[in-house]
C-alpha cells in the first residue's frame, strides 16, 4: 500500500518559527529543467520588519554567549546538517544540480560550517591588539559584533553562498536577516530547519524568501540594521549603497565563487566586527618599574 504524497510547504523562518508571509503572496520559481519548485512565500517589507525585531531581541543574549558555547552551537549545525544529507542532495538536484554537483556542494557546505565553528573562540585573539602609546596607558583593541547583519544571498547557488556568509557572521556574535536566492530558495528553508534544531536561539538567524529587488532597498534603508552583505547586486548596487548611508551601515560585496574550498577565511568574520579601543590608565608602562 502506498501513502498519499505529502508535499512540504516551504515557509519563512522568523524568530524561531516558520510563518507564512504576512502578505499572503507567493511566487513559483522554476528549476533549470523547467520543474516548478513550489509556491514559495513572496516576503513583504513587513516580514522584513518582523525579522529585524526578532533579530534585535536575540542580539544581546547571542553576543553575550561565551565564545566556546557559540562554537559548540555552530558545530551542532554541522552535526544536524550532516544527518540530513539525503534531503539536501535531493533538493539540490531538484533545483537543477547534477548528482556530482550536489554532492560537492553538500560537502563544501559541511566543511565550511565546521571551519567557522572552529573560529568562534579564536578570531578575537587574532584580530585584537595591544597598542604602543606615548602615555601611561595600557591601550588595547578588541572586537565586538556589529549587530544585525542583513544578507542578500548570492543568486547562483542554492546553499553554499548563503551558508558561507551566514556562518562567519554568526561566529562573530552577530544576528542575521537573510534573503535566500530568488530562484533557488528551497534548501535555504531546509537549512533554517537545521538551524532551528541546532540550539541556535530563536531570532539569531531569520531567513526570508522573495524578490531581491523588492527587499534589498528596504534592508538598505532600515535604521536598525547595522551591516549589509551580498554578492554583486548588479543594476541596483549603487542605489543600495546610497541607501545604506543614513545610519552608516557597513556594506560589503563579495564576488568570490563560494563553491571553491578556499573561499573562506578570517576576513569574512573581521568585516563584521567593530573594533573597540580601551585606554586603561596604568603606571609607567615599559619602564624598569613597570607592573605590566
Amino acid at each position: 500500500m502506498s501513502n498519499l504524497e505529502v508535499l512540504k510547504t516551504y515557509k519563512l523562518y522568523i524568530g524561531g518559527a516558520f510563518p507564512r508571509t504576512e502578505s499572503g503572496r507567493f511566487y513559483a520559481p522554476v528549476s533549470k529543467q523547467g520543474e516548478v519548485l513550489g509556491n514559495i512565500c513572496l516576503s513583504s517589507r513587513k516580514d522584513l520588519r518582523n525579522a529585524v525585531v526578532a533579530a534585535r531581541k536575540a542580539q544581546g543574549p547571542w553576543e553575550e554567549r561565551s565564545a566556546l558555547n557559540r562554537s559548540q552551537i555552530l558545530y551542532r549545525i554541522a552535526e544536524l546538517f550532516s544527518d540530513r544529507k539525503e534531503i539536501f542532495l535531493k533538493e539540490f538536484q531538484k533545483q537543477g544540480s547534477s548528482l556530482e554537483e550536489a554532492v560537492l556542494e553538500f560537502s563544501t557546505t559541511l566543511d565550511r560550517i565546521v571551519y567557522y565553528a572552529g573560529w568562534c573562540d579564536k578570531y578575537n585573539q587574532v584580530l585584537s591588539s595591544v597598542n604602543p602609546v606615548n602615555s601611561s596607558h595600557f591601550n588595547f583593541s578588541t572586537c565586538e559584533p556589529m549587530g544585525i547583519v542583513a544578507l542578500i544571498a548570492p543568486q547562483n547557488t542554492a546553499l553554499i553562498g548563503l551558508v558561507s556568509l551566514i556562518l562567519p557572521a554568526l561566529a562573530g556574535g552577530n544576528t542575521l536577516v537573510a534573503l535566500a536566492s530568488e530562484n533557488l530558495p528551497i534548501s535555504a528553508i531546509s537549512f533554517a530547519e537545521v538551524l532551528n534544531d541546532s540550539d541556535v536561539p530563536a531570532g539569531v538567524v531569520n531567513i526570508l524568501t522573495g524578490k531581491q529587488d523588492e527587499i534589498a532597498p528596504i534592508m538598505a534603508s532600515h535604521m536598525d540594521i547595522n551591516a549589509l552583505i551580498s554578492s554583486d547586486l548588479g543594476a541596483i548596487e549603487n542605489a543600495i549603497a546610497e541607501a545604506c548611508i543614513d545610519n552608516l551601515k557597513r556594506k560589503f560585496t563579495y564576488t568570490e565563487d563560494f563553491n571553491q574550498p578556499e573561499s573562506q577565511g578570517l576576513t569574512f568574520i573581521a568585516d563584521l566586527q567593530e573594533i573597540k579601543t580601551t585606554w586603561h590608565p596604568i603606571e609607567n608602562i615599559g619602564g624598569s618599574t613597570s607592573t605590566y
Partner: peptide, 9 residues
C-alpha cells in the same frame, strides 16, 4: 521617511 527606524536614535 519611508525607512524603518531604530530605537537607538
Amino acid at each position: 521617511s519611508g525607512s524603518y527606524q531604530s530605537p537607538n536614535y
